[in-house]
Design a protein around this nucleic acid. Sequence first.
RNA 1: GGGGCGGUGGCGGAAUUGGCAGACGCAGGGGACUUAAAAUCCCCCGGGAUAACCGUGUGGGUUCGAGUCCCACCCGCCCUACCA
Length: 821
Amino acid sequence: MTREYNPGEIEPKWQKKWDEDGIYNADIDESRQKFYALTMLPYPSGDLHIGHWYAMAPSDARARFKRMQGYNVMFPMGFDAFGLPAENAAISRGIHPKEWTYGNIERMRQQLRSMGTMIDWRREAISADPEYYRWTQWFFIQLYKHDLAYRKLSPVDWCPQCNTTLAREQVHGDDRHCERCGTPVIKKDLEQWFFKTTTYADELINFSHIDWPDRVRTLQTNWVGRSEGADVFFKTEDGADLTVFTTRPDTLWGATFMVLAPEHPLVETVTVPEYVEAVRAYQAEAAGKTEIQRAAADKEKTGVFTGGYAVNPVNGARIPIWIADYVMMGYGYGAIMAVPAHDERDFAFARQYGLEIIPVIQPEGEQLDGAIMTEAYVGPGKMINSDQFDGTEVTDDKGRKNPGLAKVIDWLEKEGLGKEAVSYKLRDWLISRQRYWGAPIPMVRCDDCGWNPVPDEELPVLLPDDVEWLPTGESPLKLHPTWKDTTCPVCGKPAVRETDTMDTFMCSSWYHLRYLSPDYDQGPFDPKEYDYWMPVDTYTGGIEHANMHLIYTRFFHKALRDMGITEGHEPMLQLRNQGMVLGEDGEKMSKSRGNVVAPDDLVRQYGADTVRGYLMFFARWDLGGPWNSQGIAGTERWLKRVWALFTETPEEGQAGEEVIKGAKQALHAALDRITRDYERFEFNTIISSLMELLNDLYEARRKGAGNHPDWPGILETYTLMMAPAVPHIAEELWSEVLGKPYSVHDQAWPEVDPQMLVKEQITLIVQVNGKLRDRITVPAGISEAEAEKTALASPGAAPYLEGKEIRKVVVVPGRLVNIVV
RNA sequence: GGGGCGGUGGCGGAAUUGGCAGACGCAGGGGACUUAAAAUCCCCCGGGAUAACCGUGUGGGUUCGAGUCCCACCCGCCCUACCA
């Protein structure tokens, strides 16, 4: 057989056959261990880009590896099909979002097929299908009925470009820009729907049941932002309640003023007439400041006095109330007690406005003086100026672990002056979007009955197709002449529908459940499928979703669990993140930079197997890196050389047993390593090991191994080892070249023969004073004494030992001997 | 300011977790084949006069032995930020 390696011919051939035979169909089989391998579903933006390949091809290889290990593997795919780009295409080019989206999906399906994945397409789910969003809406209603969804008027982030509100998680960076379009957001007071993610704050920072990367765990933990401390019940001089949260109740006696956020409701009542003008001016200024200006004014603290006073509940001290924009309405109570001696921000503010500074924590061996301190002291020490608590030890520990805090909190609770409290940065999830191309929020408002959910039997609330695209900044649903008119599900009187749609992250929070049974119509998923397949065993995708999708989907699962819909605490047991493929210039790929790598072109030029192999090989998968268009030649050569090894007639002559044994040892060493590396997602070394082994096999064949009766068996094993990474060439070699029974992908992953890992001869390293002086070949089972003797006599070491006193000899069995002179 | 990740040849990266630094590949150099080119094959490829020796960001330390562990520092990237 002498034909050329022609991926353009063999790849479509096998893709078609696998598809027709349904070899990757995953069905419930109680006799086998299941494995749910999931990779984040793409947004159908138009074309599959190299980043999609990078996320999916290695994940596919690992799913195939698991399959060969005997697991019943499900590897499904779908499309996160709602979202703004579709709508923007409609506005700018007059194509209906549905047409645009479903056209893109069709193209991306074909591209995904060209990758040669083991996707079970029968399980495909598309979030914009009415049969899908029917259940997205149903989940919304369930959350509403269980008091986990609510409507609230509050200042929310609004993207003026996208013309919609955003969740806190979707506002990024120090200029607080929109996650999608990069435009800085503004604040608006709007009534919106929220999900109570904060209910699960503590659970969301507990990762004890899941194997997720530290990086994601840290990001999520910081995002939830739990801090322990106390609520302290201050009162204004007029007797109005003014509760603050503090992580440092031990410093209460050092509170010399209070600061309210400019928007704080109490500002109205505490401000005395002569200060009203200044306060109003400051409020207006703060409200008018963009987020960029706020960030720029980072260092300088500003604020104004309200003329009002509060009373410190622990000592009755009368302290002034200020407003300042360094206190945020969105965190805690939007009000703080200021302890300038022990808080950097309060210190800067006090110095700026000449406010009193009273130290209440005395560091070891130092005497703090409020008049001359140059910075706040935030370290440990003993309490002073704090009545009966003087002398109490305060450590660096947070919360109750800190003895000073524990004592003060206990006392506050006993006296009714405060209580232990925990505060979080995490906000409830704002899910209303003032856009068309999303799942309509299935709620109806009646003048008499208020908000009520659409009855289940009326779901889905269908998106109307006949809408107009006007640049008004309003959702087309709101402008539709009749769509919003309906009747109240409670009293039957005329009522109006909610015209906002849901955040698309809502759709993607449960897609892994829809894959279980995309055609099921008795519920969001078939419980039989759920019981068998869930939870997801391996989830792969980009880390950029750490604080968005990956928080939302965990929240969702826990909420469903508490509503009795799902089981278990976590939806995805193991998470792994791939890095990003950068352009050849080392920059992020973008059309404007012209550094985009198009996978379709690569497939045409090299074939899918080469592209898959190179993506696995070219960088550490978790880090990614710049594309190198020359580097792919190495992977192409590898496959051509594999092809040649299998198809060329070997030279005359037959190798001896040593050569064939050496080949088998190399084979099993590689197999051992590749097996381990698949488990660890170390794809680059899988390909290196296969390349290295190929070099060894060429070497063996040069020595005549090609005519040995055991040679075909070695090639068979090599084919099996390649199969997950480069499925097409492996199938061709297996089924056609070697003539083995189709399909290579139904074969078991080869077993490592431990016998083959044991070597009779090893290379012993001889060091003198830690420096390499010789390498000697010795029997593997050599005794320590014998190794020492051999090393001392080795020619390489001899010159360094001459005339020296041997002080010590370290023998590492099977590895080296170090002679210390 | 806080947190995280990283720093190994010209480049991407290996190194069985304390034991031969630089596997595998790209790029580069030399050669074979060819009328020529491509493809393919073979050899070389950290520095150094290919000698000693020096080399894993820098400086210390632990150890018979450190890319790997400890301490201090420098640089780069990412996330986050008046979070009370």
